[in-house]
Design a protein around this nucleic acid. Structure first.
Lengths: 148, 148
DNA sequence: TTTAGTGCAAAATCTTTGCAGGGTA
DNA sequence: TACCCTGCAAAGATTTTGCACTAAA
C-alpha cells in the first residue's frame, strides 16, 4: 500500500508527487515512461487494459516497454491484475483493497468499498487442503442504470 | 443448471448420460467431439484451461473446433468462464454456483460451496450506477497444506 | 561508470475467420 | 435433405525474447 492512501484530499497536480513516491519506495528508476503510465493509472481510478493504456499514451511508450513495465509493476506490488471478463487482463493501481461492479453491456465500472477479509478466515477454517487464505478476487456483474 | 445436480450419487459410467442430457437440453447436436469434451469437464470437477483440455483430448478434436465449442458452450450456459490468475481463461461445467480456493504455488484447487448471493442485493442497494447485480465472481488464493 | 530501462525486429503464442467437406437430426 | 459441425489453412491479435543503444543514479 502506498502513500496515496493518505493523500485523498490532494490537488490533481499532485499526482506527480504520488508517482514519484511510488517509484522511490519500490526502488525502480524514475523514467519518463514510468511516470507517464503510473500517472495514467493514478488518474484512471479504474482498471485499465493494456490496450487502453496504449491508446491513452500514444506513441510515447513502446508497447514492448509497456508490457515489461506492467509485469514489473505487478511484481513489485504497485499494480494489481484483474479480470473483468472482457477477455483481457486489466491493471489497476494497488490502492486499498476493494472490488468492482461491472456493467455487462457498456462495461462501466463502480468501486465497491466493502471487502471480505473477515470471510477468508472462515472459508479457510472449513477447507481441507488449505490452512490459510491470503487473498481473494471478487467482482460483481450487472446492468447499469443507463443501460437498463 | 442441469440435471447433473440431482445425479450426485451416480456411477462414473453414467457421465455419458449426463452429457447427452446436457446436449439435448441445449439443442446442440450430439457429436463425438462434444461428447468427449463435455465428458472431460464433467469428470474434471474443476476449471480446465483450453490447453489442458487440448492435452487431455489429444488429436481427436482440432483446436479450432475446441475454441468454437467452448464459445458455444459458454453462450448456451453449459460452461462457465473463470479467471484463476494463471493468465489463461478456464472453463468449468456450470453446476451449482460456487467458488474456488487456488494454491498460488502448485495451482491445486478446492471448491468453496458457500456463496454470496445475499450480499449482491446489499451491494446493489449501496451502488450509485447500478440498480441490481445479477452475478459475481469470487476466488480465493492461498498456499495449500502440501506447499506450506 | 555501472546497471537498469528502452526500442526495434522478430519469434512465439494464442485466437479467430473463411471455406469446403462431412455428419446429425 | 437441410443445416449444423468440423478440419484445414491462413490471417489476426497478443505477448515474449534477444540484442544493441540510451539514460538514470
Amino acid at each position: 500500500m502506498y502513500d496515496i492512501l493518505i493523500c485523498v484530499n490532494m490537488q490533481a497536480g499532485d499526482n506527480k508527487m504520488i508517482v514519484e513516491k511510488i517509484l522511490q519506495k519500490s526502488g525502480l528508476k524514475k523514467t519518463k515512461g514510468r511516470v507517464q503510465i503510473l500517472g495514467l493509472l493514478v488518474n484512471a481510478n479504474k482498471p485499465l487494459s493494456i490496450e487502453e493504456i496504449e491508446c491513452l499514451v500514444g506513441t510515447d511508450v513502446h508497447f514492448v516497454t509497456l508490457y515489461r513495465m506492467l509485469h514489473q509493476f505487478a511484481k513489485s506490488g504497485i499494480v494489481y491484475q484483474t479480470d473483468l471478463r472482457k477477455g483481457k487482463v486489466h491493471y489497476e493501481l494497488q490502492k486499498k483493497h476493494h472490488h468492482h461492479i461491472v456493467c455487462s453491456i457498456c462495461g462501466v465500472q463502480e468501486d465497491v468499498p466493502m471487502c471480505m477479509d473477515a470471510l477468508q478466515a472462515s472459508v479457510a477454517s472449513r477447507s481441507k487442503k488449505f490452512n490459510a487464505i491470503d487473498n481473494h478476487v471478487l467482482e460483481f456483474f450487472g446492468v447499469c442504470k443507463k443501460c437498463s
